[in-house]
Simulated assay, not measured.
Amino acid sequence: MNRILSQDEIDALLSSVSKGKSYETIEREQRKSVSVYDFKHPDRISKEQIRTMRTIHENFARLFATFLSTNLRALVDVNVISIDQVTYSEYTMSLSMPSSLYLLRMSDLEGKAVVEISPQFLLFCVDRLLGGTGETEVEIREITLIEQNIVQRIINNLISTLNEVWSQIYPLNAAYDSFETDPQFVQIARSSETIAIIFFEIKVRGAVYPMNIGFPYFLLEPILQKLSTQTFFVNVKKVAEEERKFLEERIQSSKIDFQTIFAETTLSVREFLSLKAGDIIQLEKPLDDEMLIKVAGRLKFFGVPGRSGRKMAIKITRPISFEEELAYER
């Protein structure tokens, strides 16, 4: 049976005659504009909000990598791999056994976040923190209570760094809540609830370890409107300006070591051992020569000695040039 065309289809067909398009071509173009939508896994967080979350956690990865490199005495690289939205049941099923799951509570938001770190990486951290060489190939096993206490400083920094980068959008005020090794005992959301997962990779000494941070949708829902690119960059600029003023004030009120070198000479070990009270040491410096002035251990000025009231003083005559600084440091 031939179907009856609607008025819109008739108008589109008539307009296409002048452009040389057939009815079949119009139908194909309409099919192309249709996109597949999965009602079982709806994207409840927009692409723009995902981009903002990626920027936030890239900053987190950079700061956390710096901390790890310093404390583990090894070059550590942390990268954001992807951000996905899945149901909580799918997330827990994807976790390995045993796992290292840290639950974080938020003071002003309802719900908890979860951080999953490779047990192998935590065992590597334990070995390095205790002075070991840090074997990257270790057997996967549960983290003991003693080992949890050893790596707790790393977890505390992870949480504080997470709070720092999120403060540009919203103060999470995340804090350590509990530790679990079995994903079945971690019930921070309903099985059908959507959870946003930020996947990381930790690279150290040729080995790659996984890490991820999960935020249930209901936890992020009150602050989703703040996760816009425009809001993020406005807040970053505001924070940067406040930090600049704070640093200027701190620097100006800081105290630095100021030293004046009157003269220097060289003695042999025999001459040094034979020194006694009343000996005169001849210095290799003319009386009218300028003295070196060090600021925080670095040569910065030349000066001449004098008096200011009843106290000895030094008058700065000129700043030291870059070439002179290099010559004296040699």
Rank of each mutant, 00 (worst) to 15 (best):
I10G: 01
L14D: 05
L14W: 02
L14A: 11
V17I: 15
S18D: 14
K21W: 09
Y23S: 13
E24K: 12
R28W: 06
R31W: 08
D38L: 10
F39M: 11
F39C: 04
H41K: 13
H41R: 13
H41D: 06
E48F: 02
I50M: 08
R51G: 05
R54H: 11
N59P: 00
A61R: 05
A65I: 06
S69D: 01
R73W: 09
V78Q: 05
E90I: 04
M93Y: 12
P98T: 03
S100Y: 10
Y102G: 02
L104K: 00
L104S: 02
L109G: 03
K112P: 06
E116D: 10
Q120F: 03
Q120S: 14
L122W: 08
L123M: 14
L130A: 04
G132Y: 06
V138H: 09
N149Y: 09
I150F: 09
V151K: 00
E164Y: 14
W166I: 01
N173M: 12
Y176C: 02
T181F: 03
T181V: 11
P183G: 02
V186T: 07
E193Y: 07
I198W: 01
I213Y: 01
F215Y: 15
P216S: 02
F218I: 09
L224H: 05
K226Q: 08
K226S: 12
S228F: 00
F233E: 11
F233G: 01
V234T: 13
E241V: 13
F258W: 07
Q282P: 07
L287H: 11
D288M: 05
V295T: 07
G297F: 06
P305H: 04
R310P: 04
I314A: 09
T317Q: 09
S321G: 14
F322N: 09
L326R: 14
